[in-house]
Design a protein around this nucleic acid. Structure first.
Length: 258
DNA sequence: AGTAAAGTGGTTATGCCGCG
DNA sequence: CGCGGCATAACCACTTTACT
């Protein structure tokens, strides 16, 4: 797995043991043993320490194409809900764990038909989760924030996600939300796992990558569009996040020019 | 037009403090 | 325990300059 905080494939995360914090898109979840977590394609996410020293997890990554053939919208249900954490009871955990370990084995052994086998199990898992979430939503109260601080940061993250194209400073954001910049800086790091600038840059570069891929715009224009006033600086940040420069990225990702 | 490297002044992250 | 202030090193944004 790349250490990057967003990626093209969908991700399913299952915590076998330990405890984690998981920031996804705009909310932070406390993840306990036996929880399933769903991260959609290219969504920003970051795990951080929850005070428990060790943890084991299982990851599944897959692309649209892998299950596109089924044409079943319910498959993507878990990735489209507001609450991305699915809590399992003991019998459910046993069932899910068996499924996951079977998938792991199929993936390692690569016996004939392993791909179909993986698809079948993934579809089984996703449908089951989709239905359970459906039921849960009707029966239980919706997602609640861990604390007022989490709620506040959630709102601020949403704000940043909408306004990163303009110049944006920690000081401005903090004051606009009635918290001291000092306090905000700490709170943001604690809740999201990102520092403020780290977060803003990541969001901006992700958008820049999308534009490099999907448009023919010049790098200068893209840099401006995503909120950088200076092309040199944009290049430096881009390299730091993606390990490559804008033009090379475009070349690597564009197959045929239309 | 892009990229890279060096220099600058401003911003941010963070430890330590006090307050309620 | 949540919050705000202060000090300051580290970091970052932005410029300048030079190179492909």
């Amino acid at each position: 797995m790349p250490s990057n905080h967003y990626h093209e494939p969908y991700e399913i995360y299952y915590l076998l043991s330990g405890e984690r914090h998981y920031f996804i898109k705009e909310q932070t979840y406390k993840i306990a043993k036996g929880d399933l977590v769903f991260i959609s394609k290219n969504e920003l996410h970051k795990t951080s320490d929850a005070g428990v020293p060790n943890h084991e997890r299982l990851l599944i990554n897959f692309n649209d194409r892998f299950i596109a053939g089924f044409g079943e919208p319910l498959l993507f249900e878990p990735f489209e809900r507001k609450n991305r954490r699915l809590r399992l009871n003991l019998p459910e955990r046993e069932w899910v764990e068996r499924l996951l370990f079977e998938m792991l084995q199929e993936d390692q052994e690569k016996l004939p038909g392993h791909e179909a086998s993986l698809q079948a199990r993934l579809v089984t898992l996703l449908l089951w989760c989709g239905r359970k979430l459906d039921r849960q939503d009707r029966e239980q109260a919706p997602y609640e924030h861990e604390s007022p601080a989490h709620k506040k940061i959630s709102e601020i993250v949403e704000f940043i996600n909408e306004s990163y194209r303009q110049p944006i400073s920690l000081d401005f954001v903090a004051k606009a939300h009635f918290v001291s910049p000092f306090h905000f800086s700490r709170m943001f790091k604690r809740v999201t796992g990102f520092t403020f600038v780290e977060y803003v840059n990541t969001v901006r570069i992700r958008e820049a990558q999308r534009l490099l891929k999907e448009t023919q715009w010049k790098v200068t224009r893209i840099a401006e569009t995503v909120g950088y006033e200076n092309i040199g600086h944009f290049g430096r940040v881009f390299k730091k996040v993606t390990k490559t420069n804008p033009l090379d990225y475009r070349k690597s990702v564009k197959r045929v020019h239309p």
